[in-house]
């Protein structure tokens, strides 16, 4: 890899611009995505910017269980995002359709319609988990553009409050300081 490619790869990792799309979500995950840009979590430290146009975005963040109404819009927006791109499925809904499973108004899960790179589970996931998911997606995007080979999707562990998820504990079993809420999340 020559110097220009290295610089490009590094820049792609450091500058993920998001486009947020709601596929029939209850708004819980959408609020958490916006919270991850707030002063408390400040995703802009990683270069994250929430863009208004899918043409500007690198990472498509999709929430919700994908209703019939949303399918065509999601496919259109996926095609409007220019490569190299990545998709992050935020919350349990796009991954499994969650509590709405077998509903006749749904066309989910998301993997039936577009390829997904990172799943961030949770109902809703915590903002720090979303930021970690976006950072992983940016890494995947840079690597894929450099090597031109498919990379398997990543399913992030369910992270409870108090645990950063860096230990890979999957939530409540973590020995790092965690509150009672962590075990609730696991249940």
């Amino acid at each position: 890899m020559n110097l220009w490619n290295k610089l490009m790869c590094y820049s792609r990792r450091r500058s993920p611009w998001l486009f947020h799309m709601n596929g029939g979500s209850c708004n819980g995950c959408d609020i958490e995505l916006v919270a991850s840009l707030s002063p408390r979590y400040d995703a802009e430290q990683l270069g994250v910017r929430l863009e208004g146009s899918p043409r500007h975005a690198d990472i498509l963040c999709i929430t919700g269980p994908i209703t019939h109404n949303a399918v065509n819009a999601i496919k259109t927006v996926y095609d409007q995002v220019l490569g190299p791109k990545a998709v992050v499925a935020i919350g349990s809904c796009p991954a499994t359709t969650n509590v709405f499973i077998d509903s006749r108004t749904l066309a989910g899960p998301l993997t039936k319609h577009i390829p997904v790179d990172v799943f961030v589970p949770g109902c809703p996931p915590r903002p720090d988990a979303i930021i970690q998911g976006v950072a992983m997606a940016a890494g995947i995007l840079a690597e894929r553009a450099a090597k031109k080979q498919p990379i398997a999707p990543v399913v992030m562990p369910l992270v409870g409050p108090g645990c950063s998820g860096a230990c890979g504990c999957g939530g409540g079993t973590c020995s790092t300081p965690s509150s009672d809420a962590a075990s609730e999340v696991q249940q």
Partner: peptide
């Protein structure tokens, strides 16, 4: 907030 790192506009441009 803390805000973007010093080289951010440069990374955005290259990307």
């Amino acid at each position: 907030r803390i805000g973007p790192p010093f080289m951010q506009p440069f990374y955005d441009f290259i990307k």
